[in-house]
C-alpha cells in the first residue's frame, strides 16, 4: 500500500472515530454504551495517527493524537494521554524538528504521569525536557529539572546510582552560566549526596574549574580527553563542554 492509500485509510478511520464521538454525545448514545463508543473512537484515532505517520503526514498524525488525548483526559485516563503526548513530542523532535513544541508535550506528559503516581515515567519525560532546554540555552530551567530529578532519585535504592549523572549535568549547566555558581552548586551537591564526591564526574568538574580559572584550554582539553578515554562522551555532553571551553579567553578551537 502506497502513501496515498495509507492516507485514505487514515481519513476513513478518522471519519469513523468522529462519528462515534458524536454518537456518544447524543442522549440515547450516552444511555446505551456511550463510554464504549468513545473508547473505540480513541483507538481509531490512534490507528489513524499511525497510518498518517506511515504516510509521513505528520501534522495530521499529531491532530489525531491530540483528539485522542482530549477524550482520554475527559475520561480521566491520564496515563494513555501522557503516552500520546510522548508520541507527539517524538514526532516534533525527530521529524518536524520543533524542539520547543517537543518540550511542551514532554512537560505535559510528565505532569500527567506525576498525577498518576508514575514517577519514573514522569522523570524520563522531565529528563528529556532538561536535555532540550539546555540545548536551547535555557540553562536555569535545565538546572531546576536536573536537580529535581536527582533529588527524587537520590533516596531511592534502585535509582540512587543515577543521581550523580543528573548532578553532573546540572553542574555543567551552572558552569556555562557562571563559574562561581558552578563551584557553589558542586559543594551543595557534595553535601546533599556524598557518593558524588568519589565520582569520576566530580573529578572532571574540578579539573575543568581549575583549567577555567587558569584560562588554560590545553588543560581543559586534556581533562576531557582523559574522561572520554574511559567512557565516550555523548553528543549532549560534548556540546555543553564545548560551550564551556569557548568561554576560555582567546580560545576558538573545539574539543578534539
Amino acid at each position: 500500500m502506497d502513501n496515498s492509500g495509507k492516507e485514505k485509510e487514515a481519513m476513513q478511520l478518522m471519519a469513523e472515530a468522529d462519528k462515534k464521538v458524536k454518537a456518544s454525545g447524543s442522549f440515547l448514545g450516552g444511555m446505551f454504551g456511550g463510554n464504549h463508543k468513545v473508547e473505540d473512537a480513541c483507538e481509531m484515532y490512534a490507528r489513524a495517527a499511525n497510518m498518517f505517520k506511515m504516510a509521513k503526514n505528520w501534522s495530521e498524525a499529531i491532530n489525531c493524537l491530540n483528539q485522542a488525548i482530549d477524550i482520554y483526559t475527559d475520561m480521566g485516563r491520564f496515563t494513555i494521554a501522557a503516552k500520546h503526548h510522548i508520541t507527539i513530542a517524538e514526532v516534533y523532535e525527530s521529524e518536524l524538528v520543533d524542539i520547543e513544541k517537543a518540550i511542551a508535550h514532554y512537560e505535559q506528559a510528565a505532569d500527567y504521569y506525576k498525577g498518576e503516581e508514575s514517577n519514573s515515567s514522569a522523570n524520563k519525560c522531565l529528563l528529556k525536557v532538561g536535555h532540550y532546554s539546555a540545548q536551547l540555552e535555557q540553562y536555569q530551567k535545565a538546572i531546576e529539572i536536573y536537580e529535581q530529578v536527582a533529588m527524587s532519585t537520590m533516596d531511592n535504592p534502585l535509582l540512587k546510582y543515577n543521581a550523580k549523572e543528573y548532578f553532573f549535568k546540572a553542574s555543567l549547566c551552572h558552569f556555562i552560566v557562571d563559574e562561581l555558581n558552578a563551584k557553589l552548586a558542586i559543594e551543595k551537591y557534595e553535601e546533599m549526596f556524598p557518593a558524588f564526591s568519589d565520582s569520576r564526574e566530580l573529578k572532571l568538574l574540578k579539573k575543568l574549574l581549575e583549567a577555567h580559572e587558569e584560562q588554560n584550554s590545553e588543560a581543559f582539553t586534556e581533562a576531557v580527553k582523559e574522561f572520554d578515554s574511559v567512557s565516550r562522551l555523548d553528543q549532549w555532553l560534548t556540546t555543553m563542554l564545548l560551550r564551556i571551553k569557548k568561554t576560555i579567553q582567546g580560545d576558538a578551537g573545539d574539543l578534539k
Binding site: S118, S120, L158, Y161, N162
Partner: peptide
C-alpha cells in the same frame, strides 16, 4: 585501564537496568 572501562560500562548498564526495574515496579504496583 581496559578493566576500568569495562567496569564503567557495566555500571552504566546496571544503572539502566535498575531504572527499568523501578519503572516495572511502579507498573506492577499500579
Amino acid at each position: 585501564e581496559a578493566g576500568y572501562q569495562i567496569a564503567v560500562e557495566t555500571e552504566q548498564v546496571g544503572q539502566e537496568i535498575l531504572a527499568n526495574l523501578h519503572t516495572d515496579r511502579e507498573k506492577i504496583q499500579r
